[in-house]
Amino acid sequence: MIASTITLHHCLFLSILIFSIGAFGVLVRKNIIVILMGIELMLNAVNLSFVSFGYFNSSLDGQLMSFFVMTVAAAEAGVGLALAVTVFKKFKKIDIKLFETLRD
């Protein structure tokens, strides 16, 4: 695995590793904000894979795609945080469990 030259595979491996870590964070954390952070991590991992694909294929599309992802990620963070604020206002807590009240 440790090679003298870095190939696309290395970048992709790094990407999936970060993605899994982020996903794990989303699955296990209690705090809504930290869950959003996990999502940001996952999105960053995706960005990494886009940019490295673009790099190794000598294409601009990868960079542009990651640019779009960033925009969407910013928007998502905005909405997510607004939701977190709403939940906090109502319950004085930001536990993800509080969203279960939406079930009823």
Binding site: T71, A74, A75, G78, V79, T86
Partner: peptide, 18 residues
């Protein structure tokens, strides 16, 4: 999308908590 999100986020945060 960003415009919508801006409006949506404001609308969400403005709602009164319980």
């Amino acid at each position: 999308l960003l415009l919508l999100i801006a409006v949506g986020a404001v609308a969400l945060s403005r709602t009164k908590g319980g």
